[in-house]
Design a protein around this nucleic acid. Structure first.
Lengths: 172, 172
DNA sequence: CGCATTCACTTAACATGTTAAGTATCTCCG
DNA sequence: CGGAGATACTTAACATGTTAAGTGAATGCG
């Protein structure tokens, strides 16, 4: 009995609620989520074939780029939260894709680096990954892509330091 | 602001890897992820105060907008996968924020709708939520925001139908 | 009518997101 | 020197993401 509107574009506006709010599908978080999903959907199958998740791949890439890093630094680079990173590192270490050794100067810190096997795995994934990225760039347009990246960066900047306690000074 | 203590052992040059790849932090998925996180970071505290997660809030908003919907349709609207939605609906139903009843015409389908309590909860969250969105818009700029949304939409479009098998001929 | 398929979910299983605690170190100041 | 507090992680607990399998209800077709 319910034929759903196949096209979300036009305004069938079914009985407006008391709380109007913006059109749901146009909220910024939603747009970002959908765009990202559209992109990631391209990469996941290839990564999966190599036994890697998106996050594991991020970590390997980050490590390959910076050679060796403390866990906290790696978390920042790969944009993962500490707890997630802890779990993933445990797994990657078990698979011998990374190596870990506690720093001598500070026993709390541990230096993480990619192993030979890790490098090998990356080498086997990278070509496909790059090809996919190239196709995305081709479809969307290199210029627009750069523009988009710029805007995303600006967005991030304009929201930097708005969240929790933020500036002021009367903190402590 | 990158201040990590460089490894004194091999001194200079982070020793370029055999697999160069693009600068990690500039990959599109990363940019999208960071931008989205910067945005969501603003909303989460408020939602949390009301006992809602981001996804639960998405579902309530979607339901408020479309009045009642089948689970599959709701999944599409709120951009959630079936399994996630199943779990969340079970929870929201337990909290009496939504109502569910199986369709008479097709026993497989169930129609989901927001309850009075759900509407009340939304009404209590919406003002703060809108205020936050307004502040984001102010900071980033309304025009740029619209531009960004457009580009994100285009990106999604240009990648539509690239993932799985697809092609062959005309789909429906 | 009978039954293989398809459909609309739901469960299951594993990985990560997210927040709060816990643990071992390290720092600093009295 | 010692203990309070800060650091760098790690665990824990709960919610969601993601893929695969399961369940019950419609459909299509011989």
């Amino acid at each position: 009995m319910t034929k759903r509107p196949a096209d979300p574009a036009n305004g069938s506006a079914p009985a407006a609620r008391q709380v109007p709010m913006r059109d749901f599908s146009r909220s910024l978080p939603m747009s970002l989520l959908r765009a990202r999903e559209a992109v990631m959907r391209q990469f996941r199958p290839s990564l999966r074939e190599h036994g890697l998740t998106e996050q594991q791949w991020r970590i390997l890439r980050a490590l390959a780029a910076i050679e060796a890093a403390e866990v906290t630094e790696l978390a920042r680079t790969a944009f993962l939260l500490g707890p997630s990173l802890s779990r993933i590192l445990r797994d990657l270490e078990g698979r011998n894709l990374i190596e870990r050794k506690t720093a001598k100067a500070d026993q709390r810190r541990s230096m993480v680096s990619i192993s030979k096997e890790g490098v090998k795995l990356m080498a086997s994934v990278a070509p496909t990954s790059e090809a996919i990225y190239a196709e995305i760039t081709r479809r969307f347009g290199a210029r627009k892509l750069a523009e988009l990246q710029d805007m995303l960066g600006e967005l991030e900047q304009s929201l930097a330091g708005l969240g929790a306690s933020e500036e002021a000074s009367a903190e402590e």
